[in-house]
């Protein structure tokens, strides 16, 4: 792992802990923004350059702005002082620990001898430049690409319908012009 990989990983870990353990939800959002930028750095270290820029534009630049809007407009105080007790955090830590403990030994057993540099002859193919990713997406994965655009359309329509205040009346109204609102 290179030096910049270590730096970004450390920032990502610290920010992730900041997301979970911050009382004020706004500070959690800021920690998540830092974490997303650190992940973009990690993608760049791993050679996925297009994904790094896309992560900044989409995740850190659009999704988190949306979350920040919601938090600022709802103007929430920090979580109410109802105590969590001891059972919930213990169960949560158990869940987290079991996630790591079940997968990690298997990964170590499988990959401990392979470094990321051994597949030298294939290495250039995994450099995620924009042209390479473009050829993959519009070549092999074109159907999935079109379907994902459909999902985005559903997202847009759904978000608008869910956040309208008035009830949406579908169908003709009694009296007046039928079929028109």
């Amino acid at each position: 792992m290179t030096f910049m990989g270590f730096v970004f990983s450390a920032i990502a870990l610290a920010a992730a802990l900041g997301v979970v353990f911050n009382r004020n939800p706004l500070y959690s959002a800021f920690s998540l923004i830092v974490q997303l930028l650190a992940m973009a750095g990690l993608y760049s270290v791993l050679g996925a350059h297009f994904l790094a820029v896309t992560q900044v534009v989409v995740y850190a630049g659009a999704i988190m702005v949306l979350v920040l809007f919601v938090l600022m407009l709802l103007n929430l105080k920090s979580e109410s002082g109802r105590k969590l007790g001891i059972v919930k955090p213990l169960v949560a830590l158990g869940v987290g620990f079991s996630v790591v403990a079940t997968v990690f030994p298997a990964v170590v057993a499988q990959f401990k001898d392979i470094s990321l540099m051994t597949l030298q002859e294939n290495l250039w193919k995994s450099e995620g430049g924009v042209k390479a990713i473009g050829q993959e997406i519009y070549g092999r994965y074109i159907v999935q690409f079109e379907l994902s655009s459909l999902v985005l359309l559903i997202g847009i329509v759904g978000a608008i319908m869910l956040s309208k205040r008035k009830r949406i009346v579908i169908g003709p109204r009694e009296g007046g012009l039928g079929g028109k609102q």
């Binding site: 792992m1 990989g5 992730a16 802990l17 830590l93 996630v99 392979i114």
Partner: peptide
């Protein structure tokens, strides 16, 4: 090896997220 480091980091981040969802 570095692949194990990256997968370990990914697992730890996932676990932190899971703890956050529960707590």
């Amino acid at each position: 090896s570095s692949i194990v480091t990256y997968i370990g980091l990914s697992l730890v981040l996932f676990a932190i997220g899971a703890v956050g969802v529960c707590i």
